[in-house]
């Protein structure tokens, strides 16, 4: 490698030995050797141990603004994120987890860390839900990502019981704005907590499923799961 140590773009990516061969005062025996060859460039076991320790200390020190993890489910990998107040975001794989994390860093706090411990209760309840053993979620929710009318809609959605559906028009009426059918559609499409806040139970007036943030197939899977239970 001939990269100069001060090269900005390279320095960020480099993981290997950073020795420029012709650098400095290499004279005498062993001048060509990388003295740091014995130091591993990456040490996965140590990194994992240190990461877990960081998550634990950050939680203890009140620095863990957003904790997240992913969970494999019948509707694909779900990203789960929680603030100290509660579950703040659930996202489908098709929503691009990296983009969702960047959005959380921007809108909530950049102190975002992979820290599964805070999500333990949410994981347990979501697993029970997909096993057909849970019909309602009992989790602290942080609704800060839903504003105004969208938030009113989101707040009403858990009133639609497990296995039931409502039309966009019915939800609009229940939210006190019967003409805001389109706005209800937007509120559902931008629901920050899909699955847990059941926007999948809102369907078209003709009974067809309608759109869904996680894709039409995910919506059908959830509706079928609830119909079968």
């Amino acid at each position: 490698m001939t990269t100069q140590p001060g090269d900005k773009s390279e320095a960020a990516r480099r993981t290997g030995p950073a020795l420029a061969p012709a650098h400095g005062t290499g004279t005498g025996t062993g001048a060509g050797l990388d003295p740091f060859a014995a130091l591993p460039a990456t040490d996965a076991a140590a990194h994992e141990r240190l990461h877990a320790r960081l998550a634990e200390s950050a939680e203890r020190e009140g620095l863990l603004d957003v904790a997240y993890r992913t969970l494999e489910t019948p509707v694909g990998p779900l990203l789960l994120a929680a603030t100290e107040r509660g579950l703040v975001r659930v996202a489908y794989g098709v929503q691009d987890h990296d983009a969702v994390l960047a959005d959380l860093a921007d809108r909530v706090s950049p102190r975002v860390l992979l820290a599964p411990a805070r999500l333990a209760q949410a994981v347990r309840q979501i697993e029970e839900y997909f096993e057909g053993r849970r019909t309602r979620f009992e989790l602290a929710l942080d609704l800060r990502l839903a504003k105004g009318f969208r938030r009113e809609v989101i707040t009403h959605l858990p009133d639609i019981g497990y296995g039931r559906t409502e039309s966009y028009a019915q939800v609009a009426a229940a939210a006190g704005s019967p003409r805001a059918v389109r706005a209800v559609g937007t509120a559902c499409a931008t629901n920050p907590l899909p699955v847990v806040v059941p926007c999948h139970r809102v369907v078209r007036s003709d009974g067809s499923a309608g759109g869904y943030a996680g894709g039409a197939e995910a919506k059908r899977t959830l509706l079928n799961l609830e119909a079968a239970a």
Partner: peptide
């Protein structure tokens, strides 16, 4: 320009900082 999630900082720079600390 918004900051990246801190997790990315840990992943990207954690190994080199560990080498520096060890040295």
């Amino acid at each position: 320009v918004s900051l990246r999630p801190f997790e990315e900082i840990v992943t990207e720079y954690g190994p080199v900082v560990l080498r520096v600390c060890r040295a």
